[in-house]
Design a protein around this nucleic acid. Sequence first.
DNA 1: TGCCGTCTTGCACACGTTTGCAGAGAATCA
DNA 2: TGATTCTCTGCAAACGTGTGCAAGACGGCA
Lengths: 338, 338
Amino acid sequence: MKRKVTIRDVAEHVGVHHSTVSRALSPSKRDKISPAVVKKVEEAADELGYFPNIVASSLKQNRSFTVGVLIPDLTNPLFPPMIRGIQDTGEAAGYTVITANTDDEQDKELNALRIMRGRAIEGMIITTARREDRIVDECIANDIPFVLVNRTVDQDGISAVIVDDDHGVRSVLDHLVGLGHKRIAHVSGPQHASTGFGRAQAFTQCMTAHDLQGDLIEPADKYSIEEGRRAFTRLFARDKKLTAVVAANDLLALGCIDATKELGLRVPENISITGYDDIQFVDRMSPALTTVQVPKYEMGALATQKLLDMIAGDDSSASIVRMQPRLVVRESTAAASA
Amino acid sequence: MKRKVTIRDVAEHVGVHHSTVSRALSPSKRDKISPAVVKKVEEAADELGYFPNIVASSLKQNRSFTVGVLIPDLTNPLFPPMIRGIQDTGEAAGYTVITANTDDEQDKELNALRIMRGRAIEGMIITTARREDRIVDECIANDIPFVLVNRTVDQDGISAVIVDDDHGVRSVLDHLVGLGHKRIAHVSGPQHASTGFGRAQAFTQCMTAHDLQGDLIEPADKYSIEEGRRAFTRLFARDKKLTAVVAANDLLALGCIDATKELGLRVPENISITGYDDIQFVDRMSPALTTVQVPKYEMGALATQKLLDMIAGDDSSASIVRMQPRLVVRESTAAASA
DNA sequence: TGCCGTCTTGCACACGTTTGCAGAGAATCA
DNA sequence: TGATTCTCTGCAAACGTGTGCAAGACGGCA
C-alpha cells in the first residue's frame, strides 16, 4: 500500500496550516477562507491526488454518512427490491448503506446492531421487527433514528412504512367470496410479526363481515415454503371440505400448493390458493399465483427518505405510512367447486 | 445520541489504565494481561454495555475492515445468493461489506469505486467485469486487492472465481443432441462480458464436435427477459426449423419462452429451451426450466475467502478458480419433434 | 490617532483506539 | 540475600480530521 496523502501534505505543499486546508475543502466552511487560498488548496489537492479519509472524519464528527439495514435474509425475494429502493435513495443523498442478514435470530440482530453502532451509523432501517422488539428498544434507548419497513411494533410513537393489511386481506376475501367460496382457511404467518398477526386478525374480521366462519386458521412458524407445506397438511387434516386458502405470504402459498400436489388435489380446480407480496416470478409459475401486490421498491425508498429527514432534523414527528396494496388475480383461484 | 461508553469508561470502572482494557479485549494481546484483570475487564465491559468503536480502531490501524462489492442489479436473482455468500464469509472474519448497484453503466461503476476508496475499503469483489474493464485497471493502478466473480477479464494475472462454461455448455449440448436435436441455436449474452463471449465460443466449438452447424447465434445486448424475447423472435425469423435453443442465461431463456408463446409454439413439444445459472424458482415455472446450475453462494464465499487471504498477505498468487456447474434436466427440453 | 469591526488564518485539542517503551513487582536462582 | 529475569501494567504518542478560540491584518470612521 502506498502511503496516503493527507490534509497535512496538502497544507505543507501550499504553505498553510492544515486546518486551513480542512476548511478550504469543506463546502460549509469554505467561505471563511480567502478565494485565493481555496484555489491554491484545491489545485494542490488535485495535484497530490488527495481524497479525504472518511474514517478520520467520521471519528471526529461522530457522523458517518452511513445507514444500517436489518433484513432477515437477502435470498428471500421480498427483500431485494426493497433494498434497492433503500440503496438508491440513500446513495442519492451521499449515504452508504450497509445491510446485515439476521435470519430472524435475535442474537444476530443484536450483534449486527452492535457492529453498526461501532461504525457510527446515523440511522437504521429495520425490516425484521417483532411486535415487541429489542432492537427497537435499543434504538430508542440510544437515540438512534430508525424507520420500520413492512413489519411494525405494537407500541406507538415510532415511524414505519407498512402495508394496509386490512385492505389487502379484504380484497382477497371479496374476490374469493365473489367466486362462491365459503369454507375458507388461513395459513397465518408468525404471530410475533405484525404482518402475521395483522393479516390473521383482518382475516377473521373480514370473514365475520361476510357471515362466514373465520376460525380455520393454521399458524406457520416462519415465512417459508416448507412451513406452508406443513400448515396446509394440518389444515386439510382438520377440514377436508375447505375450498380456498389465503396464505399470509407468497412463500407460504407456494408451500400450500406443494402440499396440494402431494395430496392429489388440483389448484384451482379443487382448491383456490392466494398469496401475499407478489414476489418476483410468482406470475410465471404453474399455476400463476393470485396474490396481493405490495410496492416493495417504493416502501424502501419512502422509508429511507423519512429516515434521512429525521437525521437531518427536518422531521422529528413519528408517522406511520400505510401503503395500499393491490389484488392481482391470476390462475390459482377459480370458482368454488360444488 | 447518548454518549457512547468507551474503553476509558471501562478502565475507570475497573480501576486500571485504558490501555490495559484495550489489551484485555484484544484476542491477540490478551495473554499479556493477568487472567484476573481480563476477567474483571470483561465483566465491566458487559455491565456497561461497551462495544468497540470500529471507526477509531480503523483510523489507528489504518484498516477499515470493509470490502466493497460491485454488482449490476440486486434484483437480478442471480446475485442475492452470491452476495449472501460474500456477506457471510466477510462477517465471519469481522468485515463489513458494502455493495453498489451499477446497472452495468461505467460511470456508476467509477463513481461507486471512488466512494468506496474514500471509505478506505481494503478490497473489492467485482461481478460486473467486462472483458476489458476500467475498474480492474483502477484497482491494479491503486494496489487495491480484488477478486472477480462470475465474469472475468481477458488479461491475466488476476484472481477470479468463475464457472467452467466449456463444461456447462457441453453438458447442455450433449443432453440436447442425445434427445435427437440437430438444428440448435444459441441466444448469446453480451459479448463484452466473459460469460457471454465464453459460452458462445463453447457453443460453436461443441456443436462442431458434434458435427453440427454452430453458427445459428443471435446476440442479446443485456441479460434480460426482454432481450431474450427479442432475440428469439429474430432467431425464429431466420430459421423456422430450429428445434432447440440454448440461452446464455435463465433470464434470456425465460424471454425465449415468452416469445414462443407469442408465436404459438409449445415448449418442449415444438421446441426445447435451456437456460444457464438456475436462478430461484425456475424449477416451479411452467414449463420448469432445464438449466445449468452454478454454485452461486459458494462462488461468493470462495471469492471472499480468497480476497481476505490476499488482504492478510497470506496469498498473493493470482489464481482462477473454475467451478463445475451441473446440468439440471426439467421440463423445457424433450425429444426433437420429427 | 485611536477605536472598533470584519475577514482570514494559526494554534491546539479532541474523537476512541492501539502500541512501543519503560518501570514496578514478583519470581527464580545461585 | 542480592542479582537477574519475567510478568504485568501504566504512560504517552500517535492515526487524520474538525473546530472553538484567539490573534493578526486591514479598513472605516470619528
